[in-house]
Amino acid sequence: MATMSIGKAWEEATAFVAREAALLFPVALLFVALPGLILQEMTPPQLQAWLAQPKADTIPAMPPGFGLAMVITILLIWFGSLALFALALRPGISVGEALRMSFARLPVLIGTALVAVGAVAALFVIAAVVGVAIALASKQMAAAVSMLLGFGAAGVVFYASIRLVLLNPVVIDGRLGVMDSLRRAWALTRGHFGRLFGFLVVVMLLSTIAGSAAQAIIGSLGGLVAGPDGARLAGGIAGAAVSAVVQVYMLVMLARLYRQALPQDVTDVFR
């Protein structure tokens, strides 16, 4: 099993981002931050409130075309992420080459997402069927068993999401198909679950804190100039910009961790 060092990945990522910032940040802003910001502006207040505190019995009506906008936003963010991985894994290529690579490999990433969604849906269906069967046999046990099955299914999904965190670099760095990409990403993270989990938790916390601070400060300044609407827009732009910066560092670090996880004979090819 290959060794994986978060510290080494951070050192390599900071050096790479400092050197290639002019290529990385425009891609991140255009294909990661901007689509998310536009979707946020399209989201009605009632839906934003529900997303903050979701309740199954009070789901608001979704505006016409909003579902399609969500799908387009997700695809653009995936496209931009693959391009960023291409830039990180193939130093020296142009942005145009990275975008072409991303466009060519995007169908594979979409295929892996469909397989993953299908697997998750099947898992929850199985859990629901088992829960119903147990409920029919013993109503007293139904609530407790249903809760345990729900937590178990959620735990499996969470574990799988960490184990597949290197899926994007696997997809963009090779020519594997859907199932082979999933198997490859799963194999590369074997034995590294705890390290990757800790890394993602730290990134999530930093992103949340930095984004919230930027939204509050810049939003307050925007509110002084243009009122509540200006505060919301300025805060959203600031949050999106911070998110883009964090995403760049995170994706470049994942690219370095991916290189570390590769077998030595494969890694040498790219040096």
Rank of each mutant, 00 (worst) to 15 (best):
S181V: 14
L205P: 04
G174H: 00
G174N: 03
L68S: 15
A33L: 00
W50T: 04
T58P: 05
M62E: 08
S161V: 09
A214S: 01
A135G: 14
S146L: 11
A154N: 10
V242T: 14
T58Y: 06
L224F: 08
I134H: 07
F85H: 03
F197A: 07
L39R: 04
K55P: 07
T58G: 13
I162T: 10
G118L: 00
A61N: 15
V115E: 04
G155V: 12
R163K: 12
P263L: 01
L221N: 11
A213W: 08
A121M: 12
P169F: 02
W186P: 02
F103W: 11
M147S: 15
L29H: 05
L196M: 13
T112L: 03
A69L: 15
A255W: 05
A86K: 02
V171C: 13
A56H: 12
F31Q: 02
W10Q: 12
A185K: 02
A28W: 03
S181T: 09
G80Q: 05
Q215V: 10
T43A: 01
I74E: 13
F158Y: 11
L164Y: 11
L233D: 02
A88E: 03
F158A: 09
A18W: 12
A21P: 03
G236H: 02
P263A: 00
L262G: 00
L136F: 12
A240K: 00
P60M: 10
P45F: 10
S212F: 06
Q46W: 15
I172T: 03
E20H: 12
V170T: 06
L47T: 02
R163A: 07
V165Q: 15
G227P: 03
E11C: 07
L167F: 10
L114F: 03
Q247E: 09
V245P: 01
A121E: 12
A18M: 10
V266Y: 02
L23M: 10
P35R: 01
M179Y: 09
G223T: 03
R184K: 14
A143P: 07
A33P: 00
L47M: 06
V71C: 05
A49D: 08
R163L: 14
F16H: 01
V165K: 11
I77A: 14
G211V: 07
G80H: 05
P169Q: 13
A214W: 02
V266K: 01
V145E: 07
G155Q: 09
F66C: 06
R105I: 07
Q260V: 01
V246M: 14
M101I: 11
A154W: 06
A116D: 11
L166P: 04
F31G: 02
P91H: 02
L221A: 08
L224C: 06
L224I: 13
A216N: 15
M42T: 08
L39K: 03
L149H: 09
A244Q: 11
T112C: 07
A210R: 06
A241E: 15
V170S: 02
L251T: 03
V129Y: 05
A160W: 08
S146Q: 14
T267C: 03
L29C: 15
A214H: 00
L176Y: 06
P63F: 03
L37I: 07
A83V: 00
D268P: 10
L109W: 08
G96A: 10
V145F: 02
L89Y: 09
